[in-house]
Structure formats: structure tokens, C-alpha cells
Amino acid sequence: MTNTKLSDLTDEELILEFQLNNTVKAYEILVQRYKNPLINYIYRFLGDYETCADIVQETMIKVYKNKDSYKSIAKFSTWIYTIAGNLARTEYQRRKRRNIFSISSHGDDEEPFDIPDQSARPDVIADSGIKDEIIQKALLQVSDSYREMVILRDIQEMSYEEIANITGITVGTVKSRINRGRTQLQKLLKDIYKE
């Protein structure tokens, strides 16, 4: 199959090609298609660019290694977003634990300590305005279970059904979490958005 033909294939056809004929080019096209949406998704969720790039690489490696575990009954996007989401959630929980332990270890000596805010890295916000930075900071203050849903719906523009498949929860719960997340965001961003 020529490269031009490969690039015309759907995601599901590409992964099938990769599964059946081990066509690395098909895999590369999938990487090309998904690297930026996944980076965007994970970055908005974690707020740390370096970690998010690592997580997306890990996701791609998982796809490469476990290509045969993909079943064509599901959409490829659902599968890859599920892998990335699981990795991001695990990393988020790990960080939260690490922060708790580091805070508690500082508890005895009453000196102030800083938790690095990596969302403000200049290379990350170079081509985005202050507004973006404020929104990102607000987004990171939203409860993680709501934040993930809001990102998938309002930034990744996915349907409720797709989000339900990715996160493994019901459509009703997805809807309510999205709305709760939006309400939290509204309160946090009341100064910069206009009704």
C-alpha cells in the first residue's frame, strides 16, 4: 500500500493495517494524527508540558506494543484516549500523593515552602495570551474528575457517548460532571468572561 493511500485511510483502517501487516508507516500516520490532540488533552489536565509529552510518548508506545489488543468494535480514538487518560490520571494521583507527603514532611519546621507551578513555563505560554494562562490555572483548580470531562467535551469537542466510553462511566454521570465542572469554572473565571 503506498503512502498516499495510507494517509487516506481512517484510523480504524490504519490500525488494522498495522495489526495485520505490521506496516510501521500506518502507525506513524496514527502518531501524526493523535500527537497534538493528546498533548493538548493531557496538558490541559496536568498543566505540565514535559510530563504531558512523556505521557503521550508512553501512550504511543503502548499502542505500538499492544496493537493486537485493539478490537475493531471500538473507535480507535476512544481506545487511544482511554490509554492516555489512564496514564494521566495515574500520574495526577501520584503527584497528589507526592505533594501530600512533601507537605507533611515540611510540617514540623514552620518554614514556608513552594510547590512549583509549572503551568507558567514561558515556553508553554509563549504563543498564548495571559487569558489562556488564567483559564489554564482555573482549569487546574477544578476537581480532577470534572476537569477531565470538561476538557474532553469543550476543548476536545467530543460527544457525551465518546466521553462515556473513554472514562468508563455512564452518559448521565458524564453530563452532570461536565456541568459541575463548568459551574466551578464559571465561578473561577467570573472576572474574564461575559454572559
Binding site: 503521550v56 508506545i61 504563543d127 489554564q136 470538561v150
Partner: peptide, 24 residues
């Protein structure tokens, strides 16, 4: 939630680092 959705929708897109694919 139209206003909040618009804020989120038009946030700048974050791209993968240039060496992403070669590293991978």
C-alpha cells in the same frame, strides 16, 4: 454555558515538541 465553552474552545492549542516523533 456558551460563554465558558467559547473561552475553552478558543484557547490556544498546545503542540507536541518538534522532536516528538523522532524520539518516539
Amino acid at each position: 454555558y456558551k460563554s465558558i465553552i467559547n473561552l475553552l474552545k478558543y484557547m490556544s492549542k498546545v503542540s507536541a515538541p518538534p522532536n516528538f516523533e523522532s524520539d518516539l
